[in-house]
Amino acid sequence: MSKSCQITGKKAMSGNNVAHSNVRTRRKFNVNLFAKKFYWVEQDCWVTLNVSAAGLRLINKIGLDAAIKNAAAQGFLS
């Protein structure tokens, strides 16, 4: 499974490690992901999602049902 949030669509980025001597080497900035189980009241079932910390805050703010519908409309859920 890819390292991306199923709610916000955040993915790993690439960038540079910069040493004190200003030598640059490529590195990856991974997403702060959690495999989290949520109880979806509207469907009366448990759902396991890979969500980032920003995705958790979004679920707390707008609710699980609205967050899943937005993610499905934008194509983040499979």
Rank of each mutant, 00 (worst) to 15 (best):
M1N: 11
M1T: 10
M1R: 08
M1W: 09
M1P: 12
S2F: 10
S4I: 02
C5D: 00
I7S: 00
I7D: 00
T8A: 03
T8H: 07
G9F: 08
G9S: 07
K10N: 01
K10I: 10
K11S: 06
K11G: 05
K11Q: 06
K11V: 07
A12T: 11
A12C: 07
M13T: 14
M13F: 07
S14I: 13
S14F: 15
S14W: 14
S14D: 10
G15T: 09
G15F: 01
G15Y: 10
G15D: 04
N16F: 06
N16H: 06
N16R: 10
N17W: 11
N17C: 01
V18W: 07
V18A: 11
A19S: 15
A19H: 06
A19K: 15
A19N: 15
H20L: 09
H20N: 15
S21A: 13
S21T: 12
S21V: 08
V23L: 13
V23K: 15
V23N: 15
R24G: 01
R24Q: 07
T25I: 08
T25H: 11
T25W: 09
R26C: 04
R26T: 12
R26V: 02
R26Q: 13
R26G: 12
R27H: 05
R27V: 03
K28H: 10
K28M: 09
F29S: 02
F29R: 05
F29C: 02
V31R: 03
N32E: 13
L33Q: 04
A35R: 14
K36L: 08
K36Q: 14
K37V: 13
K37M: 07
F38E: 00
W40N: 11
W40T: 00
W40V: 03
W40H: 13
V41Q: 10
V41R: 05
V41P: 07
E42N: 09
E42C: 01
Q43G: 07
Q43H: 05
D44E: 08
C45P: 02
C45E: 15
C45I: 05
C45M: 13
W46R: 08
W46K: 12
V47H: 06
V47K: 11
T48W: 04
T48S: 11
N50R: 09
V51Y: 04
S52T: 01
A53W: 11
A53Y: 12
A53D: 06
A53M: 14
A53C: 09
A54F: 08
G55K: 04
G55L: 08
G55H: 07
G55P: 07
R57W: 05
N60V: 03
N60D: 15
I62Q: 14
I62D: 05
G63K: 06
L64F: 01
A67T: 02
A67V: 00
A67S: 15
K69C: 12
K69S: 14
N70V: 07
A71C: 01
A73N: 12
Q74T: 11
Q74F: 13
G75Q: 02
S78A: 12
